[in-house]
Design a protein around this nucleic acid. Structure first.
Lengths: 205, 205
DNA sequence: TTTTATTTTTGAACAACGTTCATTTTTTTG
DNA sequence: CAAAAAAATGAACGTTGTTCAAAAATAAAA
C-alpha cells in the first residue's frame, strides 16, 4: 500500500466530504441559496480547496446529480422482482413520484436544472448516461408489456417517452409550485390522483 | 387631458419599453444570461431607472410571464371555434407543444422558473391567476368531453391535471435538454410523436 | 535528523451580479 | 424667470463564482 495509494484514497474521501456537505446544504436551504463559501464552511475547509477538487460549481452539481440517480436506483430496486410487466409499470410510476416528492431538491437537480447537462456539454460529453439508463429501464418494462399484448398499435420509444413525461410533468409542476397556485381540491394527493387517472385509462389497454 | 394623465401614460410606456427590451434579450441570450445592466443598456436608460419602474428582477420576470400567457392565449384563440370537444382537446395539446417549442424561453419562465411564483408569494398573492385561467380552459374542454360520454369513470380535475402534466413534461424535458442526452430515434419530432401515442390511447376512450 | 522537494491548503483579490440612494437633470408650477 | 416637483442617474454596497501567488503541511533525500 504505497503513499500514492493513500493520497488517492484521501483525495477521494475529501471529494466525497465536499459532496456530502453540499448535499446537506442543498436539502436544507435549496441549491440556489447555497454558495461555495457555505459548502467550504460546512466542512471546515477554505473556498480554494473546493476548487482543487472540483473544476467549478457545475462539476459539484453534476456529481451530486449522479448520486441522485444512485438513490433513485435504490427506490427502483424492488420493482424488478415484480414479474408482471404491467404491474411493474404501474408501481414504477408511483415509486418515481414518491422519489420526487421525498427528494424534491435532488429531483430538480437530476431532471430540471441546467447545470448537470451544461457540465456534460462543457466536457464534450454527448451522452447523459444516467438518463439513458433510467429511461432504458422504463422502456424495457413497456416493451415487456407490449409483448404481452398491451398497447397494441403504439410505438415503444414514443409511448415510453410519453409515460416518462407524464410523471415528470406532475413532479415538475409540483416542485416548481405550479400546483400550489392552481389550488386543487386535494393538493396533497393530486400527483397520485393524476397518475391514477392514467392507470384507469391504461387498465383498459 | 391633464399633465398627470400624460405622465401616467409615459410611465406605462417606459415600463413597457423595459419589458420589451428585457424580452428581446431573454430570447436572444437566455434569461439567466441577461442582467439588469444589459436591459438598461438595451433601452438607453440607466440601471437606476429600471428600479424606479420595477421593484426587483422578479417583478420584471413576473410581468413578462404574464405577457407570455397573453401570447399563449393568441395561440389558443382558434381552438374555441372547434365544436367537438375531443377534437379541440387533441388540437389543444398540439398548440401547447407548438407554443413551448417556438417560445421556449417564455415557456420556461411561465411554467418552470421560480421567479414569477416567488414574486406572487412576496406580494402575499395566493393565486396564480394566469395558471388558474389556462388550466380552467383545459378543464372546461375535458368536462365537455366527459359530458359527451368520454373518459367514463375518470375524475375531471385529476384527469385534466394528468393531461396538462403530460404535455408540460414533454416540453420541460425538451427545454431542459433531457431529450437531447437520451438520443431518440427522431429527436426533432419526439414531442409530437409522444403526444400522438397519448392520442392513440384516448381515441379508444 | 536536517534539508530539500513536492503536495495541499489557504484567503485575499477580481470581475460581475442585483440592488440602493444621494445627487443631478429635467419638467412642471406659480 | 424662479421655485418646487418629478424623473433619471451612476457610484457604491454586499454577495456571488472563481483565480492564484503565497503559506503550510507532508514526503523524499541528504
Amino acid at each position: 500500500m504505497s503513499v500514492a495509494d493513500r493520497k488517492a484514497r484521501e483525495k477521494e474521501a475529501l471529494k466525497m466530504l465536499i459532496l456530502k456537505g453540499a448535499k446537506k446544504l442543498f436539502i436544507e436551504k435549496g441549491i440556489e441559496q447555497t454558495t461555495i463559501r457555505n459548502i467550504a464552511d460546512e466542512i471546515d475547509y477554505s473556498v480554494g480547496t473546493v476548487y482543487v477538487y472540483f473544476k467549478d460549481k457545475n462539476a459539484i452539481l453534476h456529481d451530486l446529480h449522479s448520486i441522485g440517480f444512485q438513490e433513485l436506483g435504490g427506490y427502483f430496486k424492488d420493482l424488478f422482482k415484480i414479474e408482471d410487466p404491467m404491474e411493474r409499470l404501474r408501481k414504477m410510476g408511483f415509486v418515481y413520484i414518491k422519489f420526487a416528492i421525498e427528494n424534491s431538491e435532488m429531483y430538480d437537480l437530476m431532471f430540471n436544472l441546467k447545470a448537470p447537462i451544461e457540465f456534460l456539454t462543457n466536457c464534450d460529453n454527448e451522452d447523459w448516461d444516467e438518463g439513458v439508463t433510467t429511461f432504458g429501464a422504463l422502456k424495457e418494462t413497456v416493451n415487456q408489456c407490449m409483448q404481452k399484448g398491451h398497447f397494441e398499435g403504439n410505438s415503444l420509444e414514443a409511448l415510453s417517452f410519453m409515460i416518462w413525461s407524464l410523471v415528470h410533468g406532475m413532479c415538475c409542476l409540483e416542485i416548481r409550485q405550479r400546483t400550489k397556485g392552481v389550488k386543487f381540491t386535494n393538493p396533497d394527493t393530486i400527483l397520485y390522483d393524476g397518475y391514477n387517472e392514467f392507470l384507469k385509462i391504461i387498465d383498459k389497454m
